[in-house]
Design a protein around this nucleic acid. Structure first.
Lengths: 233, 233
DNA sequence: ACTATTGGTGTAGAAATAACACTAAGAGAC
DNA sequence: GTCTCTTAGTGTTATTTCTACACCAATAGT
């Protein structure tokens, strides 16, 4: 095999599935950020944020750059998902895309303010528009991965505000796993792990007894992770 | 964003980590197939099989093609692992590689016979030569993935001959998971899943009581998979 | 027939999981 | 200020799963 590329090169892009969790009452739902395309093909259609990988940046850097450019989101949880390489996935030319998924808490980041392109919006995963290219497939894989991962790694906290109630946390798990959990057993299990610590604060402006606020204890989490602790829910 | 690629394109390759399990007595060990390079850089060094992705083939096709060309292996279990895109991972130019891992049973496939390049060889994962590029890192990720995956999906059977003893199966799990398992508990668990069925045959040419041979029942496995059965070991 | 080696089997204590219902607190309506 | 509505918060028990553990059986080789 010679060093020089004997064949035409596929183009290489990154695409990012950004999950957000709306933790307000009644609204509690898992959402995905989409961009409205202003160019053909699929002009006016909705697509995942993403773009070409430059030759002098890593894949992770490319994903973070595109995310910042297209949605204004920075410093969020980002992880490589899978690489999609069907030959006809882009009708123009051969494009291979490295897909990422990102988790963000909807309250903490003011999306609209930072967005150059005003054409970014959140959609509930349960009610999505038709997506461009093979982006629906990418999104399905991402959703499945999130579901699998949340069972044994406490990544769910990335989707919640800094202070949260146990009810919000449980609801988040219920939405991701798509099944109901027992309140008492859930609380027992979460608190036994010791990565969720109670604060002295309680929630405000609710029309019923206010719940205690908790926060995620990253130090304890890191320590337990080092010891090979299993965070299975 | 315009359609035309405004920047230089990274080259795109696939690399495959082929795991094989030697199920002969005493030899029982997890091995990896490596290729000895005959070109710079790393000339004479050992590397994972792999090569450039062509513009008219999918990533999976590219991995299968390279595997057949460089090692003669066909029709084996193959799964995408992760995509490595560090900027300086290839000293010549920017190369992004989509890594795969493959599982093969050492007895069933006659490697040497089909190999064009005679410079392919098996190495025990516990005793590897120094590898070219970032291939050691790729291999580590693959090994970790195999360890994680074998816990909840019975992919281990891909590494065994068609008929195998429970001792071989247990040993395989012990090698992959790197810990000893209790014989009685292991057998109870495996047989309770009903995806391993006993045959009427027993092993031959052993200097002690011969063990019963079992086989993997793919039909039952597929049926249980559809029902969301959990194959955790 | 004796030895060496691996095959094959059950039970009991410990731990984890799953099911389940009431009182407490606060907001808002009247 | 009492009544109602809504969610917060808390333990126990039965069931299931997991773990630890030791002996007889079969065969090959001497």
């Amino acid at each position: 095999m010679s060093h020089a590329y004997e064949f035409a090169r596929p183009a290489l892009t990154v695409d990012i599935v950004v999950f957000g969790f709306d933790s307000e009452y009644g609204e509690e739902d898992l959402k995905v950020m989409l961009i409205q395309r202003d160019l053909a093909p699929y002009e006016g259609g909705w697509a995942l944020p993403g773009g070409f990988v430059r030759v002098e940046e890593t894949l992770d850097d490319a994903a973070r750059r595109e995310l910042a450019e297209e949605t204004g989101l920075k410093d969020i949880y980002l992880e490589q998902l899978y690489t999609f390489g069907a030959v006809e996935r882009d009708p123009r030319e051969r494009v291979v895309t490295v897909a990422y998924y990102a988790l963000v808490n909807l309250e903490g980041h003011d999306i609209q303010a930072n967005t150059d392109a005003r054409n970014a919006a959140w959609f509930p995963v349960s009610d999505l528009p038709e997506l461009a290219f093979d982006h629906q497939e990418i999104l399905d894989v991402a959703h499945e991965r999130l579901r699998g991962k949340v069972r044994y790694q406490p990544i769910g906290f990335e989707l919640l505000p800094d202070r949260f109630t146990l009810r919000q946390l449980q609801h988040l798990y219920e939405v991701i796993l798509d099944r109901e959990l027992d309140k008492r057993n859930f609380r027992k299990k979460v608190l036994a792990m010791e990565i969720v610590k109670e604060t002295k604060e309680i929630e405000k402006d609710v029309a019923h007894r206010a719940a205690r606020l908790y926060h995620f204890d990253k130090r304890t989490y890191d320590r337990l992770t080092k010891q090979g602790f299993n965070f299975e829910i």
